[in-house]
Design a protein around this nucleic acid. Structure first.
Length: 414
RNA sequence: GCCCCCAUCGUCUAGAGGCCUAGGACGCCACCCUUUCAAGGUGGAGAUCAGGGGUUCGAAUCCCCUUGGGGGCACCA
């Protein structure tokens, strides 16, 4: 309705006209221009129809499109990032269609009408619209509104340097959020594409607040920038480390839940994580999360009732199965002497180190055997904190289970 | 094909004529720290500033050409 009115106004003022050219005619024009090595453009066949001609076309049942008169001359504007730009009206492809034959408006027209309606003062968009800008300026003028300020930002590129488009690339911020990137990192990363503070060294981490202070279109580049996912991951880690503990809990909880739901769907018995418990786990994971989505692989062992352990991981490089069985048995004994009441990292570590020393084992080997026995993994948060997080009972049970697993294997081998 | 834009390490960039034998960050490598993984620390490799002409006492910085890359030219958005 708004577009229709605007179009009718342009028609009334003869800034636009009805065009009855058939698609076949337009294609023939285009083919001819191509053959002549010219730029495709509308030739203006219907630009000056008489009332009689129009009636004749209408009588044929032709539905007209509405074309906007582009005129002649050069259109100049001062872009906030590109500076002075001039484009000749003859390079605009002829009078452009603003209303289709079915009455619906085209993009270039609707954005201008919308922006005019909303009295936009600044249009900040991708460089891909730079060559469309003269059309928009002409439309704004015809609509009788003040032409907004333009700023054309460099494009964000795929690794192959082509434009990152909505169609063939992942561009939705929601997708990155779903992958565990946090908004602070996304904002920071995007700000750094095509812009730098200019304050030289060590100036890479910028929060929204700070950006509103230091960001300036004057310093924006003109060349496109490749979206570097590795740098985004680094920034994401930086920002995750800066989150307050309770904030991290509320942001990572959904990711953990999702991973646990998958395990449940596989038929595994899974315990429900409590918020208070997650809060105590924050120190174990905060600096180990490249993305929030990594939380599951770091903590899932705490919530599954039955751990699946690969016996090959269980035996440290310098040990054999028998030594591992002995090591786990001794570790269990030592931990049991600590008991459930004094079960703290500060109690566990010195005693287990002492055990290793007494038996002439490398502490790392003993620790690795314990680590795999209670988590099923070789890469985990710090061992003693992990044991505490797991709890006294579970730790002992898992040490026993691991030992039995190796025992069973040994028995079968004999 | 026509029009427009761009051009410094693999990537993001600092650099607005001498401060540049080109600085930082990501990534990579090494070492340190260390119970694993991370994080952190230190160091390193990595750019004849796309190429060629000018201008200038002096050019990554200014001008021209070439090359390369990108974007736009729809009854798409």
């Amino acid at each position: 309705p708004l577009y229709r009115e605007a179009a009718e106004q342009l028609l009334r003022e003869d800034k636009a006209y009805f065009c009855y050219c058939s698609r076949e005619q337009l294609e023939a024009d285009k083919a001819a221009q191509e053959a002549a090595r010219e730029a495709p453009r509308y030739v203006g066949r219907c630009a000056h129809l008489t009332a009689g001609q129009r009636r004749a076309f209408e009588a044929e049942g032709r539905k007209p499109v509405t074309r906007f008169r582009v005129g002649v001359g050069t259109i100049a504007f001062d872009d906030l990032v590109r500076g002075h730009v001039e484009i000749d009206a003859s390079d605009l492809g002829g009078d452009l269609i603003i209303i289709r034959s079915d009455g619906t408006p085209l993009y270039h027209f609707s954005v201008c009408v919308d922006d005019a309606e909303m009295a936009m003062t600044h249009i900040i968009r991708g460089e891909d619209h730079l060559s469309n800008t003269p059309k928009h300026i002409l439309l704004f003028r015809a609509l009788g509104v003040e032409v907004p300020q333009f700023a054309h930002l460099p494009l964000i590129l795929n690794p192959d340097r082509t434009k990152m488009s909505k169609r063939k690339s992942q561009t939705a911020m929601a997708d990155y959020i779903a992958q565990g990137f946090i908004r602070e990192a996304l904002v920071n990363h995007l700000a750094l594409l095509g812009w730098a503070s200019g304050n030289g060294d060590e100036a890479e981490i910028f929060g929204l607040e700070e950006l509103t202070q230091v960001f300036d279109l004057d310093r924006v580049h003109r060349g496109g920038a490749i979206f570097d996912r590795e740098r985004l991951e680094w920034l994401n880690g930086q920002w995750i480390r800066r989150l307050a503990p309770d904030e991290l809990v509320s942001r990572m909880a959904p990711f953990l839940e999702a991973d646990l739901a998958v395990l449940r769907a596989e038929g595994r018995a899974v315990r429900e994580p409590a918020e208070a418990e997650l809060l105590t786990l924050v120190p174990l994971v905060q600096e180990r999360l490249p993305t929030l989505a990594a939380v599951g692989s770091l903590l899932d062992f705490l919530f599954v009732e039955e751990l699946e352990v690969d016996p090959r991981l269980l035996v440290p490089k310098r040990w054999d199965a028998a030594a591992t069985i002995e090591g786990l048995a001794e570790a269990r004994r030592v931990i049991a002497t600590v008991g459930p009441v004094a079960y703290e990292a500060d109690e566990l570590e010195p005693r287990l180190r002492e055990l290793a020393e007494d038996r002439g084992w490398k502490a790392g080997d003993l620790f690795m055997a314990i680590r795999v026995a209670v988590t099923g993994k070789t890469a985990t948060p710090p061992l003693f904190d992990t044991l505490v997080a797991l709890g006294y009972e579970r730790t002992l049970a898992r040490l026993d289970a691991a030992r039995e697993l190796l025992d069973g294997l040994a028995a079968r081998a004999v």
